[in-house]
């Protein structure tokens, strides 16, 4: 089995990252910021998509293992759904703040 990178965001990790941002404790290089965590997670999501693409192309050309194609596509689908759901949440939060009457 090829190992497929998956999107793993733990609630505790997200809470840690958020508390750092909320406390104004953004590090200078941004390596520990909430943005960096999201960037890393999205990078993994894109990588999962690429793996699924590779497997699907192999299946289309008659090669590859069908169960591996199915699992790769499942992982990619779930990762994409999670990524879009989290993105929607973030955009909604920004919009809520922007529309806030001052």
């Amino acid at each position: 089995m090829t190992t497929i990178p998956t999107l793993v965001i733990t609630p505790s990790g997200a809470a840690d990252a958020y508390s750092r941002t909320a406390g104004g404790g953004t590090s200078a290089d941004g390596s520990n910021s909430f943005g960096a965590a999201i960037t890393q997670a999205l990078g993994q999501a894109v990588q999962t998509g690429h793996t699924a693409d590779d497997q699907a192309m192999q299946a289309l050309s008659g090669g590859g293992n069908l169960t591996e194609v199915v699992t790769a596509l499942s992982h990619a689908e779930m990762t994409l759904q999670a990524a879009t759901a989290i993105r929607d949440r973030m955009v909604q939060a920004y919009q809520d703040i922007i529309k806030m009457p001052i």
Partner: peptide, 9 residues
């Protein structure tokens, strides 16, 4: 989610 992904594999 990690456990569920492993269950798939």
């Amino acid at each position: 989610a990690g456990d569920l992904n492993q269950a798939l594999d």
